[in-house]
């Protein structure tokens, strides 16, 4: 369990705590107005100057001596902000974690607040120009997004039942997308995404710049050398470059320090050779999210 489970998990994982999905919490945090402000100009989040610095050329800015470290600390602070005067237009307090498909489905079936909607993945829309019905949003965020036509799919059902939402996530998993659950803003949970690098903004900031917009899952993958047939199916499923085929061993090797614990390799393996193990139980990986 991570820091956020300690703070918002009520003794368990943060994303399995029913309170974080509740309308009481959304109301106490006055989130309708906050999310409206955040979403109506969502695409501007990377362009906007925050304390004089925008994301344009962020990679270079972070490499500057001293200033780079100051910027990194400021951005991490914003991403994880729990302060009362959070700023919606810079997406303060908005971050997530990778989860395996079974937990994504469990959230849809039991925890997500209705109404549940599916809408265009805004990352793919703003960075690839591709309209892909993919993101599952729920609770107060649903009604906020429903008012913004550019995110609303045409000729497709927008509101989903719990079963339909779980099936939609399963379908995304089959396509090879990584399930992620999001605080927006912390500790309120209102989205499960099915992400793909490099156009996912969250994974981009994590993978390319080391910022903790997305945490690794509570799990990591391990391959059973006796069961692996060396078919390499799993290699193509990993978005994090954590799996490699060894010609000498005629099987795959998984680098647990690179693994994000999404479970896609396990889901694709035709020989049941991969399993997910709890991150907490490995002394090297414990606490490394």
């Amino acid at each position: 369990m991570c820091n956020w489970c300690m703070k918002h998990g009520a003794g368990g994982k943060w994303y399995l705590n029913a309170r974080n999905y509740s309308y009481e919490l959304a109301e106490a945090m006055n989130l309708q107005a906050y999310l409206e402000e955040q979403w109506k100009n969502f695409e501007q989040v990377y362009i906007r100057k925050i304390m004089g610095v925008s994301s344009i050329g962020l990679g270079y800015k972070l490499r500057m001596p001293i200033i780079g470290r100051v910027i990194r600390r400021a951005v991490e602070g914003m991403i994880h902000s729990e302060s009362k005067n959070r700023n919606p237009v810079r997406a303060d307090g908005h971050f997530g974690q990778v989860i395996p498909i079974e937990e994504a489905k469990l959230i849809m079936l039991n925890l997500a607040a209705e109404p549940i909607i599916q809408n265009y993945c805004m990352c793919r829309l703003m960075q690839k120009g591709i309209k892909d019905v993919c993101c599952i949003n729920f609770g107060v965020l649903s009604t906020v997004i429903e008012k913004l036509p550019r995110f609303i799919p045409e000729n497709t059902k927008v509101r989903l039942s719990r079963d339909e939402a779980a099936a939609a996530l399963e379908e995304q998993n089959r396509k090879g997308r990584v399930a992620t659950v999001w605080f927006q803003p912390v500790p309120y949970i209102c989205a499960i995404c099915s992400c793909e690098t490099p156009q996912c903004g969250g994974l981009r900031l994590r993978m390319d710049f080391g910022l903790h917009t997305v945490y690794k899952a509570e799990y990591y993958a391990e391959v059973n050398p006796d069961l692996c047939q060396g078919c390499k199916t799993c290699v193509a499923s990993c978005q994090f470059g954590a799996i490699r085929f060894s010609p000498t061993l005629k099987r795959v090797l998984i680098d647990p320090t690179k693994c994000f614990g999404c479970g896609l390799c396990r889901d694709r393996c035709p020989h049941d050779a991969i399993r997910l193990l709890p991150r907490d139980e490995n002394p090297l990986l414990r606490g490394k999210y």
Binding site: K40, E43, I47, M126, Q199
Partner: peptide, 24 residues
Amino acid sequence: CLQVCDPAVFIRHMAFNVKEDNPY
């Protein structure tokens, strides 16, 4: 440009402050 760029360098977004009373 969005479609052809493999590392997804570009973002398409609303312009800023086109009308002063409505930045969005």
